[in-house]
Amino acid sequence: MSRSILPVRRLSVAGVLVVAAVLAGGTPADAAAAPATAAPAAVVDAEDVITEVKLPDGATEVTIHVPAPGVTTDQLYQKLKAKGTPGLKAPAPAPKSLAASPPDDLCNLNYSATWSCPPVHWARNGFGHPQVYFVDYTGSSYPVSQVVPVWDQAHGVDSHYTHSCPTTAGVHCVQVSENNYGANGEFGSTSMRFDSNYVFFDGLVNITLNNYYANYSAALRKKFTCHETGHALGMGHNTAVSTQSCMIQGEYEFPSPNSSDFTLLARVYASF
């Protein structure tokens, strides 16, 4: 994910300290002098890091960890490994380029893909489409209210923005929260649990955003918010930077899904 990247951005001295603190595993105090406009020196084309644990009841628990600006995939992997994170999968970077013959099946459409195959998905529970409510516990740093209506443009699954989980039977709620976890190398993560039929467990799909990194650009924060909410619907990654999808990995400031992402979601949910 031909390959175009964003222009290189120069760091101030304080900005360099931010990245240095991140790479060294420091704390927020290590970067206290950083300005609110601190930004990465250049695009880091980092892959997400995944943990996967099989549970005794046959369910699977997965967490998708997104590297923070300036943090490589291997650096985040090593941080998680040092903490003894269970189910950690060694990174296997995928090439990001325009393939001559992109795949086209239930799990792939052009350069878009689900994050697992068979696709993990939400149950309808008597509705025409699964009803997924993103319950926003974040502040103004992360534009959950802006990205959820965009995902709702995908047919087959309905995405709603709310501040509290409805009591209506059969709807699903995904909690989106933020906290200051310090320079742990993660911009955020999406944790989820699904059964042996690849159906999400309601209440066990959650998004956490690290506001230690909230001083990066609004466009980058919107991209990562869009990226994580896409994962919570079952979406994986888009593999071509030229498509400018928020599901492309790395520090690309693409704030929205593209038409292939929408069409793949519709295809997935039409099959169940």
Results as ranks from 00 to 15, higher is better:
T138S: 08
T167Y: 00
T138F: 01
P143Y: 02
H121I: 11
S189R: 15
P118F: 04
S116P: 08
P149R: 09
S164I: 04
G156I: 03
G182C: 07
S145W: 12
K96I: 11
A92T: 13
V148Q: 05
L106Q: 12
D158P: 05
P149D: 03
K89P: 04
Y198A: 11
S177K: 13
S140R: 09
S177F: 04
T73K: 00
N180S: 13
V148A: 01
S177D: 07
G128R: 13
C173W: 05
V157A: 08
D195V: 05
L80K: 04
S159K: 08
Q146D: 12
V174M: 02
S140N: 12
Y137I: 00
P119F: 05
F134H: 02
L88N: 04
C107M: 11
N179W: 10
L98G: 14
K83V: 02
F187E: 07
L98T: 14
Q75H: 13
D158K: 15
K83H: 01
Y181H: 15
G182P: 07
A113D: 06
D152T: 09
S116D: 09
G182L: 05
N108Q: 12
C107T: 12
P143I: 00
K83Q: 05
H129R: 15
F127N: 10
A94I: 15
N110Y: 09
F187L: 14
G139Q: 01
A183N: 13
S145N: 11
F194V: 02
V132N: 04
G185R: 05
N184Q: 07
P103F: 01
L98M: 13
S189M: 11
Q146P: 02
A82V: 01
P166Y: 02
Q75D: 11
R124T: 11
S145T: 09
H129T: 15
Y161A: 00
H155T: 12
Y198L: 04
T168P: 09
V147R: 06
T72E: 04
D74S: 10
V148T: 04
L76K: 03
N125H: 10
P102Y: 07
P143V: 00
G156S: 07
D74Q: 14
L106F: 07
V171S: 11
L106P: 10
W151F: 04
A169Y: 11
A82S: 09
N184D: 05
Y133D: 00
Y181E: 09
R193S: 05
L76A: 02
Y137P: 00
S140H: 08
N180F: 10
R124M: 09
T72A: 10
K89W: 04
K83D: 03
W122S: 06
V174H: 02
S196Y: 07
C107P: 10
S164G: 06
D158M: 11
P91T: 01
T162L: 01
K81L: 03
V157N: 06
D195A: 06
D104W: 06
C173L: 08
P118V: 02
G185S: 06
S191M: 10
W115Q: 08
D105L: 08
D74P: 00
F134M: 03
Y181M: 13
G139I: 01
V71D: 10
P149H: 07
V71M: 15
P166E: 03
W122G: 06
P95S: 12
T190M: 14
P119V: 07
H155W: 00
S141Y: 14
F201T: 06
Y133I: 06
H129C: 12
S140C: 00
K81F: 00
A169W: 08
Y181S: 14
A99E: 14
D104S: 15
V157S: 05
